[in-house]
């Protein structure tokens, strides 16, 4: 269904990796000609998810892909960690719920900021979040 045009992989281990990662996502977004607003939305969502990964799972692996569906181009980001997993996904996706003293807007905010959002989590094994942001979406 989706054709992957370009792919990159980055390992996130420490807080200092967040900014380079965001810059890399931005490079990809600029390359496909995404508008500034959508770029910012994508980068913010990416930033939220990367921070989650660092905070709750001590890091993980992220993939940045340029994908295309029909005429539309977009960026797909995959965040895979081997952390403790999320016990209740519905609760985690609720605004203002946080187990870690933050605003509790990371996951739901990232969902609102991206065009497509998917989260898979197994307790004890880890969490994988996939988001897609279409160029004009």
């Amino acid at each position: 269904m989706y054709i992957v045009l370009n792919k990159d992989r980055m390992v996130i281990e420490k807080e200092q990796d967040v900014v380079p990662y965001r810059n890399r996502v931005k490079e990809f977004a600029v390359k496909i000609g995404m508008s500034l607003v959508n770029q910012t939305k994508l980068i913010t969502a990416a930033s939220e998810l990367v921070r989650n990964m660092l905070k709750y799972a001590n890091g993980g692996v992220t993939t940045i892909e340029v994908i295309s569906k029909g005429r539309e181009n977009g960026i797909r980001l995959v965040f895979a960690d081997k952390g403790p997993g999320i016990a209740d996904l519905n609760l985690a996706m609720k605004d203002g719920f946080s187990t870690g003293k933050s605003l509790g807007l990371g996951l739901p905010g990232a969902k609102r900021l991206s065009s497509e959002f998917d989260i898979q989590s197994t307790v004890g094994k880890g969490t994988t979040v996939t988001i897609i942001k279409w160029k004009n979406g």
Binding site: L36, Q39, K41, T44, E48, L105, P108, G109
Partner: peptide, 13 residues
């Protein structure tokens, strides 16, 4: 900035 304003609204902050 405008794009930040939109993002903040979407995030729900």
């Amino acid at each position: 900035r405008p794009e930040i304003a939109q993002t903040v609204v979407h995030l729900g902050i």
